[in-house]
């Protein structure tokens, strides 16, 4: 029917593909290349120089204590914040779906964190977690709990992590709630009617009907939010500033580790270290996506 129109199609695609070529495909390949260059100086006067090829950049990253600190922080953020925020937003979405009135109002409120500036609100959270003047410790004192030093200079690692997790979960709810509520609207009402006739309990309905029918959405959300959590960065900047923690680098994440080298691009190999760390991050996200894909094949009900 329609004839092929190769030349014309490529003309329409040209603006996108040229920009993607320069700013996505080339950098992607180049990142792998510079990660194996020895003594690479990209900004040396008279042009970039390197002395050969090596895997020592990766070795140096893997021997860097700070990198493992970054891995640990990032994994703790991801493994704790993702399941908790998915569970909370599922319960919220189901609750939203069961109320006849005010649904739009609640939805609007729940969506607010999505449209705010992560740094600005991070600063607000930092002050909420202030040991003496903060709201959190005041609320804890109502429950008879002694003030905790969350983000101050001598805060413990878990206290800082606690503040970071609260902020991460708060910021991650909006998108998940929105996706789950739109998912719930696609579920055929007759399943719930059938459950009502059998007078099934709410918990049974949630476990046996809602969760299985929402499983494609839950899978999608767990993959995207896992990838998002593995790239945590602006939440840390918002809460702790460029120090990346109550103590220097105590809450450093993998992305923050990559960016740590940005001010040192003039230095020998600095960009190669950054590239190696970014590539390790890339493989971590790929592995997680694959694992979740395999798990889903057994569990997801389409």
């Amino acid at each position: 029917m329609e004839k092929r129109n190769n030349l014309k199609a490529w003309l329409y695609l040209a603006p996108l593909l040229i920009l993607m070529g320069i700013f996505i495909f080339y950098p992607l390949i180049n990142a792998f290349y510079i990660s194996i260059l020895e003594e690479y100086r990209p900004l040396a006067p008279g042009g970039a120089t390197a002395t050969g090829y090596t895997l020592s950049n990766f070795a140096r990253i893997l021997n860097d204590e700070l990198f493992w600190q970054a891995i640990k922080n990032t994994f703790v953020v991801a493994f704790i914040s993702v399941p908790i925020s998915i569970l909370i937003s599922l319960v919220i979405a189901v609750s939203l779906n069961s109320i006849p009135k005010l649904k739009a109002l609640y939805q609007t409120v729940f969506f607010l964190p999505y449209v705010t500036n992560a740094i600005a609100i991070g600063m607000a959270f930092a002050f909420m977690f202030h040991k003496d003047y903060g709201l959190i410790n005041l609320m804890l004192s109502w429950l008879g709990i002694d003030p905790v030093n969350w983000v101050g200079n001598v805060a413990t690692w878990w206290a800082q992590m606690g503040a970071l997790l609260v902020y991460t979960i708060w910021g991650g709810l909006a998108f998940k709630i929105l996706v789950f509520t739109s998912g719930l609207q696609n579920i055929d009402k007759q399943y719930y009617d059938a459950a009502k006739i059998d007078s099934a309990s709410k918990w049974t309905v949630f476990r046996r009907i809602t969760v299985p029918l929402l499983s494609p959405f839950i899978l999608y959300i767990s993959i995207t939010s896992m990838i998002g959590a593995l790239k945590a960065y602006r939440t840390v900047i918002g809460l702790f500033g460029e120090r990346l923690g109550a103590q220097q680098n105590s809450m450093i994440t993998i992305v923050a580790y990559v960016y740590k080298y940005r001010s040192a691009y003039q230095d020998v190999s600095a960009i190669s270290y950054a590239a190696s760390a970014a590539i390790i991050l890339f493989f971590i996200t790929v592995v997680f996506s694959l694992i979740q894909g395999v798990v889903s094949r057994k569990r997801v009900h389409y």
Binding site: N5, N6, A9, L13, A31, K231, V258, A275, T285
Partner: peptide
């Protein structure tokens, strides 16, 4: 439009969405 390699190209473009932006930013 109809052109050769349309589906492959589209799949390649979608795949780039998986790559963390930190990789691009250096270069």
């Amino acid at each position: 439009l109809n052109f050769k390699g349309k589906d492959t190209l589209f799949a390649v473009l979608l795949a780039t969405m998986m790559v963390p932006g930190e990789i691009f930013i250096l270069t």
